[in-house]
Amino acid sequence: MQPERLTDDLLEQLLSSTSPEAYLSSVELPERTLADYARALLADRGMKRADVIRASGLNTTFAYQVFQGVRHIGRDNAIMLAFGLRCTLVEAQRLLRLAGASELWCKVRRDAIIIYCLNEGMTRAQCDDELYRLGEKTLVAPEERDGDV
């Protein structure tokens, strides 16, 4: 996967441009969906969808439909998918943007814990443990977490 330019860099370039056309002609703005991005990450990591589904804790059929691009994904499910895809913080924020959800915000207590876990390369199950330990709502409901490793 080609390294992507950061939003902050692009914003800086846009603000320093003399016109919108100048900016638009100088940058390449990819039109892609969440499914496209998820598949690109999958290929980049050499992972299989089954691995991602297991690691994310998402429902199998639901995750399949997300990869097929036929299902909208909510914020918590997008975060779970990000853990399943072993995303970095930047990649997870992109995934959330493509899902149409608000990005993780370090001024929000629960988001801050998730950011920390993503940054530390923790798994989804480890992140849920942290959320539970710190009294926050877990990504997977406690009654569904029996199978977590």
Binding site: K48, R49, A50, I53, R54, N59, T60, T61, Y64
Partner: peptide, 16 residues
């Protein structure tokens, strides 16, 4: 299609 069957199909699908 059960979850187990779908997982097996996905494993196979991604093996190509």
């Amino acid at each position: 299609m059960t979850d187990a069957e779908l997982m097996a199909a996905l494993e196979l699908d991604d093996s190509y």
